[in-house]
Amino acid sequence: MLPASLDEAVEALAATPGAVPVAGATDLMEAVNAGRLRPAALIGLGRITELRGWRYEDGGTAVLGAGLTHARMDRPDFAALIPALADAARTAGPPQVRNVGTLGGNVATAAPAGDTLPVLAALEATATLARAGSTREVPVSHLLTGLDPLRPGELLTWVRVPLLNAPQVFLKATGRSGPARATASVALVLDPARRAVRCAVGAVAPVPLRPLEAETWVAGCIDWDARGEDGATVIDPAAAAAFGEYVAGACVPEVLPDGTNEGLAQGAARVRRTVSVLARRALGRALK
């Protein structure tokens, strides 16, 4: 069934308890093909055109439709708005998947390696969930952590993100040069109005992690007034490197103190180093 409007979709979902909403189906069909899911009914969201775009709201907020595809978010007009999300969308799988895979599906699936998730966490995005007759607003991080999960019969309709008009970076480490899921990723956004840096680390834990202390610390190290001036040193390279270590230390558990790095500890050390470099580079790019 392919409802053409949000109301129809929400009603169909309420009327059919076992039904599964289907956006791009890239995660869904993967599960169906692997025998992990046997849907009782399918409700296709692809024809709900209102969810496939975005709009602006007062207070410098963009309201993104859950049906925005990765391919759409990768385009320059969107990249100008929320560069980190565009960067994340650009690396989220091969073209065949990005042509149909959606923002809403990425959030609803909430895979650890979901590429838009650290960006939404860094942007402190909120999601609108709709059910027949009512809607509610939930921070995306609450959705992801399960603090306030998507309930049966609910559709993710909109994702609200602030328009910061400042550099944002998303960097991702993978196992190969072609499209692949992240082994670690870092999203970093600058908020010059508040003189703040916000950073989230993806794929190293079940949900994106925010190294809050490191953020506050590094915001104090940045020469905000020098930003944009030619040849100015906005941040001491040593501070940027320390920021990387700080972020990695906050997000990846300690290596064994006795130095006998074996098994898990060794893997953790590698992820740590990856996160540290990604965070340092992300900061460097954002402040360039």
């Binding site: 069934m1 308890p17 076992g18 009782a40 009914a41």
Partner: peptide, 15 residues
């Protein structure tokens, strides 16, 4: 009897 099988639909949703 499959544990994966979901609640059967009460309405005809697809086709």
């Amino acid at each position: 009897t499959d544990p994966l099988a979901q609640t059967p639909p009460t309405h005809d949703v697809v086709g």
